[in-house]
Design a protein around this nucleic acid. Structure first.
Length: 713
DNA sequence: AGCACGCCGACT
DNA sequence: GTCGGCGTGCTC
């Protein structure tokens, strides 16, 4: 009702409703501006604009969310100052997603937009505007989804259902990639579905593993499933978004997708891209049905008509977003598929407790592969170690014989917990663990003769003196990948030894005989898979404290075990009990289910949600009180937080609440933050330069429940 | 964030 | 009487 300006020319909308690009929670709502005549043609939903903000003659960056006929603000509207670029970069669907994600996390929508919308690239936008009309895209075949019974996965895709998919184990071979269609530059359209022209070699077809052998490439079973599901989605003219934890998974997925989808309809997002590439990917993703593949950022990719959102290995820590508002990729995917009605696939070998919860709720369908081709897992808890070298390398005799046998024909994988040589050093005299003088971190050896080095800060520790007894000599504790490799090198004379740890990344090894020693998660791919896999150090990996330890370790074992060739054997060394049973029977959902039951009793996540409140004692207490009767179980804390970066007097409390109260809790906490951030001026005189925010809220942060990884550099 | 508005103490 | 301290609130 406010705007009484001149009549609208051409019936164009005269109000731009915008979201400001500001991290202030007080400004996290929509603002109406008048669209001046000169901008009516360009000021459309999704474009970046600059708008005045009364206080201080500031001009703020913003995105147009919608352009209604009339504003809802009862007052005079300021005018949009500038349309930064006519290219719409914030799709309405992405805006809705950002709003919901921020609301779930008691966060600010513009923080989510920073994750979802790449920074502006003028050249990329110009090229996008100047692009010639596409030739009709080549037809996409409709593959069956291999390895699952009776077309269950096909049905889920068609019905836009949701499923927890137990992945197909073992590598599988795919046909050669679909050749790129040569599009005649500048010429008009091509008949749709015509025979593709011979490959234009310039495009991004990667060099697949094992292509030389049979004209096809080996990929993990899950990657084939994802590619098949994406091809079906694309054939129905919907976009598919496939999200993986890291770069190596992305490479394997890309090979699989390229075997079924023409490369010009695949859009890639990864962490190593420049801003320009990212911006280009985002524009391409939003411009028609495509297959988007990428890391966690891809879950926010624009997609006009989303048909499928799939996540591989949702338990991987890479899916924990490190930037505000810290929303896990899995949670974003849940919100997005509910909003868009797209199908959701959460696929993994091992099951996270979070997914198990959704399965038990009936929210996700539990889908297992057809006549499960599972790795043959042999637990060796009870067996005694072999003699000699094998004993040094912690390998029981049965596993030892199998590994030696297998290493004559192909690569054998040995998974260990830690990189480097010795994971730790201790005083040779009194046994006290050697620590860094600078930061107190543990000292270790990267190589056998290497200087002692801090595993946390990397400082070299020359001239060690034990702080307890004053002795100056060190003794090695624990085996790193390098040490295991050296021991195995002596034990397998003449065999090629490959070390793949955090320090030396090896993406793949060929099919010739080798012993491949890899740290957890760094296992190289090999065409056809390993004939034998040894999982060492399990006991040590399980020794850590923390809510996620067991499910993490199972996930790491399962992912390595899935790299065996069909018919190969996996030796799980030194582990018995329910985790070993789960591996042997490949029922990796059962430990998740038990774990979840325990956490229900204890009111721990993911049975409940948690809010971590940090700040001054007064602010934290007030926030806890504001939550009223939402909390489940006793509030943990407040307890003082000490640390170099925290102001003295900072406390932390953890509130647990049921999922059903999520909206209410998030809204209450956000209101509390707004109150605090506009009422916080009480800066004591003098010494303290800047008052820290009096209240910081983080939802579903598991860090307080987890011990840091002392083993990782 | 910045900036205006407004309500109490010390001053010409 | 007025000037200005900074606590409080607002930004279309």
């Amino acid at each position: 009702m406010g705007s009484d300006g001149p009549d609208t020319p051409n019936g164009a909308h005269r109000v731009a409703r915008v979201v400001l690009d500001s991290p202030l929670p007080q400004l996290d709502r929509l603002f109406d501006y008048r669209i001046p005549d000169a901008l009516v043609d360009s000021c459309l939903p999704g474009v970046r604009v600059r708008v005045p903000l009364r206080t201080g003659n500031r001009i703020a960056d913003a995105y147009v969310v919608e352009t209604p006929d009339e504003g809802s603000f009862p007052g005079d509207l300021s005018a949009v100052a500038e349309v930064v670029s006519p290219v719409p970069v914030l799709a309405p669907e992405v805006w809705r997603l950002a709003r919901a994600v921020a609301d779930r996390a008691a966060g600010v929508a513009s923080d989510v937009l920073r994750l979802a919308v790449p920074p502006r690239q003028v050249r990329v936008e110009k090229a996008f505007l100047a692009r010639t009309a596409d030739a009709a895209p080549p037809a996409v075949a409709v593959p069956a989804v291999t390895g699952y019974p009776d077309g269950v996965v096909e049905r889920i895709l068609e019905d836009c259902g949701r499923a927890a998919l137990v992945a197909v184990a073992h590598p599988v071979r795919l046909p050669a990639p679909v050749p790129a269609v040569a599009v005649p530059a500048g010429v008009g359209s091509q008949p749709a579905g015509s025979a593709p022209a011979p490959a234009a070699a310039g495009t991004t077809a990667p060099d697949p593993v094992g292509t030389a052998e049979h004209g096809g490439s080996w990929v993990p079973g899950w990657a084939r499933t994802f590619a098949e599901a994406a091809a079906r989605t694309l054939a129905a003219e919907h976009t598919a978004i496939l999200v993986v934890p890291d770069f190596r998974d992305l490479g394997e997925l890309e090979r699989a997708v390229h075997a079924m989808v023409p490369p010009e309809r695949v859009v890639r997002f990864d962490a190593k891209q420049t801003n320009g590439q990212r911006a280009k990917s985002a524009l391409l993703a939003g411009s028609g049905p495509v297959v988007v593949i990428g890391n966690r950022a891809a879950v926010y990719a624009p997609a006009a008509d989303l048909g499928l959102l799939a996540i591989w290995d949702d338990g991987d820590p890479s899916f924990m977003e490190p930037r505000a508002p810290y929303v896990h990729t899995r949670d974003v995917a849940l919100i997005r598929t509910v909003q868009s009605g797209a199908a959701l696939l959460l696929a993994a070998h091992a099951r996270s407790t979070d997914v198990q919860r959704l399965v038990e709720l009936g929210w996700l369908e539990d889908v297992r592969p057809h006549r499960a081709v599972v790795p043959r897992v042999v637990p060796t808890a009870q067996q005694t170690s072999a003699e000699g070298y094998a004993a040094q390398a912690r390998i029981p005799s049965s596993a030892w014989r199998a590994a030696r046998e297998a290493s004559r024909t192909g690569p054998v994988l040995v998974q260990v917990a830690s990189p480097g040589f010795a994971t730790g050093l201790a005083c040779a005299e009194c046994g006290e663990r050697a620590r860094c003088r600078r930061c107190g971190g543990p000292l270790g050896n990267a190589t056998s003769g290497g200087a002692p080095q801090c595993r946390w800060c990397g400082a070299l520790a020359a001239g060690f003196r034990c702080t307890t007894c004053g002795n100056g000599t060190l003794r090695q504790v624990g085996n790193g990948a390098q040490r295991t490799a050296e021991e195995l090198g002596r034990a397998f004379p003449g065999t090629r030894i490959v070390v793949a740890d955090g320090l030396r990344q090896v993406d793949e090894v060929d099919g010739r005989p080798a012993v491949v020693v890899a740290t957890r998660g760094a296992e190289p791919a090999t065409p056809g898979g390993y004939a034998c896999v040894l999982l060492l150090d399990g006991e040590r990996m399980l020794a850590r404290e923390g809510l996620r330890v067991a499910e993490d370790v199972l996930r790491i074992w399962a992912n390595a075990a899935a790299r065996t060739a069909a018919g190969g054997a996996v030796y799980l060394v030194g582990i018995g009990g329910r985790l070993a049973t789960a591996m042997v029977t490949w029922r990796l959902d059962l430990p998740a289910s038990e774990e979840l039951a325990d956490r229900r009793v204890l009111h721990f996540p993911p049975a409940v949600r948690v809010a971590t409140l940090t700040g001054t004692e007064q602010a934290v207490t007030a926030a806890v009180e504001a939550l009223g009767d939402a909390p489940v179980g006793p509030v943990l804390g407040p307890v003082p937080v000490e640390g170099a970066k925290t102001a003295p007097g900072t406390v932390r409390a953890i509130v647990r609440f049921p999922y059903a109260h999520g909206n209410e809790v998030a809204a209450t906490l956000k209101a509390e933050m707004i109150r605090r951030s506009s009422t916080r001026r009480a800066v004591p005189r003098g010494s303290r330069r800047r008052a820290a925010p009096t209240l910081r809220v983080r939802l579903d942060d598991l860090e307080p429940f987890t011990e840091p990884r002392p083993d990782w550099p």
